[in-house]
Design a protein around this nucleic acid. Structure first.
Length: 677
RNA sequence: GCCGAGGUAGCUCAGCUGGUUAGAGCGCAUGAUUCAUAAUCAUGAGGUCGGCGGUUCAAGCCCGCCUCUCGGUACCA
């Protein structure tokens, strides 16, 4: 086992096409920040790396839609994100961006290094090219008719109507969304990272040597490796990104997934000339904090890149979190179903620690979790205010009242005093053990337990009563209570840095010294503390209601948007319409197609014949309930084999805004085989 | 369908290599208390550990089947 001298912590680079929300925070930035603050307090050599991920097609699309440049888009979001992180207290050593000059150089060098070593495959393929715009088209820039469901408006990579992932070259009637022209296929060359060649290594490295990774991470890796790894293109034909640094690669950039993780390296390089020490010295430990959507990149793809390059360390652990939901629904940027960090910071001024606490105490460590405003309020009022803030306030107020703020001289300790002082060490120890294992939820709970210990100590000793009868005893009691208070000022620092600092100021403690954490004497007798000040404020119902109203408003806006029907397709002639032969028919039999989720095999009496149709409606209808129903069926659609069944025709369905399907059929019984027109 | 992760008190979660009456916090009830932002402290109620079957002296934990949730993947004429 190599001795660890330093730690490099990376946090997933937020994509610069929108601000940061609580899901990002809970999954990545809050735990990473807690961990790094903890290591720093222990005096360890550690760096926290972050930055904005600014390349990729979605950003170019957003720029085009808004009539601005991609650089404008990323400039806008990069500054919002960077500022909100800073205000929130995520203690990055560097927060960079992938549009920086250093990153272009680093990513180019990295590519060049793998290229020179022959680690890439070169492959030519057919891609669509827009002759009017003079450029190759990314999949998202092409729309056309889906070859599966025959709906218009499918994208080159996916049909949003039926959900199928596509190759752009499969689309019928493709159109460029840039110029509207019909693109032509051209041959283009790309480089591929042969992940399949690294499979044996990955199997050994992850499945054998990293059994200690979190179950969700380990399991997902195993799933992917067992599924078989494919070569992955590392370049694309696009003009936004890091140019591929080889001859004859004009108009090609590095694929965003390839350049983004290299952003960690670039950022480190911007930070320190010693960057190689953090990336290549085997005595450095590399940790990636990410969300579960990023597991494949950080456990399979990026390590393969690093391994192929040959001089870099591989990650030691990848403590990926699950997802956070919001009030029962999935967080969504496009649907504006989120609590945005920059808005939170305005709505809840100086309450960074409240959000940090709630997201830590309710972190999605082992499974998806739900954030609710009611829980947010309860945790603030019942835990931060009532347990932690209240205990601190009690001990400081009493000290002011009895001793003018001077830490008293303890008299002889009783057993209960000794047990309580021992308890400080126990909770400090438990907190640290949990932090060492990335169990942040448990860690913050143990830290809170120290405050509970304080409340219990005061309740049991009742100094406000003894002050009248046994003043000497009260000196001991207040001494002990103050040691707990001072310990809290240290122990809470990783979790609640703002409150911890305020508390240290209140106690006139000066700099945090983690070595004192868990000690029985942190404040010396005779030391003067300041006036009591509330660490946390109660949050009123009205504030919570305002947030709920805000969410309700975006829900309404979404519903309104969903009600807007898609624009009409271009006109066709009557002849074109009459080519379609639609008839009424009756479902005679229906059964689920084995091993599928959506498919029903239907037998239809079309009035002409009885035929079999496979239809993707199983999610909405039980087979037995639709037998006997009349339907409309397109009878002259070319037959197609689906899951080994010849499907002869297509049942017409209407799709509701939420994706629900319903039959399009006559209102009253009509003879089977009647023409629909 | 296949792969992965989950399903433990009303809510959020712990439960080590299977071992005595299954735990914590919040919420709830009762009592104590007033230094404190009606905060705190104590006590209590509440669980057929998703379901069925099996292995075992013993299963929340192991095995098989089923079921629900989340993610990935296949299917959608």
């Amino acid at each position: 086992m190599t001795k660890i001298k330093r730690t490099l912590v990376t946090t997933a680079l937020p994509y610069a096409n929108g601000p940061v929300h609580i899901g990002h925070l809970a999954g990545v930035y809050v735990p990473a920040d807690i961990y790094v603050r903890y290591l720093r307090l222990k005096g360890e050599d550690v760096l926290l790396i972050g930055g904005s991920d600014e390349h990729g097609v979605p950003i170019t699309l957003k720029a085009r839609n808004e009539g601005i440049t991609p650089q404008d888009v990323v400039d806008k979001y990069h500054s919002i994100i960077k500022q909100s992180f800073a205000d929130f207290g995520i203690s990055f050593d560097v927060y960079s961006r992938t549009s920086s000059k250093t990153h272009y150089e680093t990513a180019s060098e990295f590519f060049k290094s793998l290229y020179d070593k022959g680690e890439f495959l070169e492959k030519e393929s057919q891609q669509y090219y827009d002759e009017e715009a003079g450029q190759f088209l990314a999949d998202r820039y092409i729309t056309g008719t889906c070859p599966h469901c025959h709906k218009d408006g499918a994208y080159g990579d996916q049909c949003e109507s039926c959900g199928t992932s596509l190759n752009a070259t499969d689309l019928l009637h493709p159109r460029s969304t840039i110029s509207g022209s019909t693109p032509v296929q051209r041959t283009t060359k790309h480089w591929y990272l042969p992940l399949d060649k690294h499979e044996a290594f990955l199997r050994q490295w992850i499945l054998e040597e990293h059994k200690e990774w979190k179950p969700n991470v380990y399991g997902q890796c195993k799933s992917w490796i067992d599924l078989g790894l494919q070569p992955r293109a590392v370049s694309r034909d696009l003009d936004w990104g890091v140019p591929v640094p080889v001859e004859g690669a004009e108009g090609k950039v590095l694929y965003v997934w390839f350049d983004a993780p290299i952003g960690y390296i670039s950022a480190t390089r911007e930070l320190t000339p010693d960057w190689e020490k953090y990336w290549k010295d085997p005595e450095t430990r590399l940790l990636h904090f990410i969300g579960k959507d990023n597991i494949v990149f950080h456990c399979i793809v990026f390590p393969s890149m690093l391994k192929a390059e040959g001089t870099y360390n591989l990650p030691d652990n990848v403590p990926a979190n699950e997802f956070l939901n919001l009030e029962g629904d999935k967080i969504s940027t496009s649907r504006n179903w989120a609590v945005w960090l920059h808005e939170y910071l305005l709505d809840f001024k100086d309450k960074q620690d409240v959000l940090r606490y709630v997201l830590t105490a309710n972190a999605p460590e082992t499974k998806d979790n739900d954030f609710t405003w009611k829980d947010f309020q309860a945790r603030n009022n019942n835990e931060l205010v009532a347990i932690f803030g209240n205990f601190v306030n009690r001990s400081v107020v009493l000290t002011q009242k009895y001793y003018n703020g001077v830490v008293p001289q303890p008299d002889e300790l009783q057993d209960f005093d000794r047990e309580t002082l021992e308890g400080i060490g126990v909770f400090a120890q438990k907190t640290q053990e949990a932090l060492d294992q990335f169990k942040f939820r448990e860690a913050v709970k143990e830290a809170m337990n120290l405050a509970r210990l304080g409340n219990k100590y005061l309740a049991d000793t009742e100094p406000w009563k003894l002050i009248k009868t046994d003043a000497a005893r009260v000196e001991t009691i207040m001494y002990v209570a103050l040691q707990i208070t001072a310990n809290l000022a240290i122990l809470m620092e990783p979790f609640l840095p703002f409150a911890a600092e305020k508390l240290r100021k209140m106690l006139n403690m000066g700099q945090v010294d983690w070595k004192l954490c868990g000690q029985k004497q942190v404040l010396q007798t005779g030391h003067s503390i300041g006036e009591a000040e509330l660490l946390f404020q109660k949050i009123e119902d009205s504030e919570i209601q305002a947030q709920l109203d805000k969410l309700q408003a975006s829900k309404k806006a979404n519903e309104a948007a969903a009600r807007t029907a898609n624009p009409a397709k271009e006109n066709i002639s009557f002849d074109e319409f009459s080519k379609m032969d639609i008839r009424t028919g009756t479902i005679l039999e229906a059964e689920k197609v084995a091993k599928t989720k959506k498919l029903l095999k239907l037998k239809i009496d079309t009035g002409l014949d009885q035929r079999t149709v496979v239809s993707g409606i199983a999610e909405f209808f039980e087979p037995e309930t639709i037998v006997g129903r009349q339907v409309s069926i397109l009878v002259n659609l070319a037959p197609r084999n689906i899951k080994g069944i010849e499907s002869q025709g297509m049942i017409l369905m209407a799709e509701d805004a939420d994706g629900r399907l319903d039959f399009v059929a006559p209102q009253s019984p009509v003879k089977n085989g009647s023409e629909v027109r």
